[in-house]
């Protein structure tokens, strides 16, 4: 079996192609927007948590400073408990794993995870912010990647 169909007239074909291209872009856009609705992560500061509490289990990012004197290592030696504060309110956080290089009391952190039913934030990753000096965004960008990741 061979396909020996005569090619369409170029002008018509161009229109068909155009329609296809626009449909593909529209499809991609629709796909993107529908995925955004379900997978975009919202960012909360501790005060925001008290103003409008996220549902337990909802994936969010929580950012703030690691409260001074709050970092405790639990007996398993691997889990850290600490509080994240924005100098107004603070939230208890629990994280199992190796914290990033820049994690320290008093330093800014961004944690990803969810709240459990008791109101403790279970972090699956902790990102520390740099502190020494202001840096170009490419460095900022890479620092955001310096993160720990939890054992599944």
């Amino acid at each position: 079996m061979t396909t020996t169909k005569a090619p369409m007239k170029p002008k018509h074909q161009r229109l068909v192609l155009l329609a296809l291209a626009l449909a593909a872009m529209a499809g991609a856009l629709a796909l993107g927007i529908s995925a955004l609705g379900s997978s975009a992560t919202y960012f909360y500061a501790p005060s925001d948590v008290f103003a409008k509490a996220p549902a337990p289990g909802e994936a969010i990012r929580l950012g703030g400073l690691v409260q001074k004197g709050s970092v405790q290592r639990l007996p398993d030696g691997l889990t850290l408990a600490f509080r994240v504060t924005d100098n107004a309110r603070d939230v208890p956080v629990r994280y199992t794993g190796i914290v990033p290089d820049l994690f320290r009391e008093g330093q800014g952190v961004i944690t990803e995870g969810h709240f459990d039913a008791q109101g403790t934030f279970i972090a699956t990753s902790v990102l520390a912010k740099h502190d020494e000096n202001y840096m170009p965004p490419e460095v900022e960008g890479s620092l955001h990647k310096v993160q720990g990741k939890v054992t599944s």
Binding site: A28, G32, A35, S39, A40, T41, Y42, F43, R61
Partner: peptide
């Protein structure tokens, strides 16, 4: 908000 790997993996 941040858009991370879940979005890109899904699209």
């Amino acid at each position: 908000i941040s858009v991370g790997p879940p979005y890109f993996n899904a699209t």
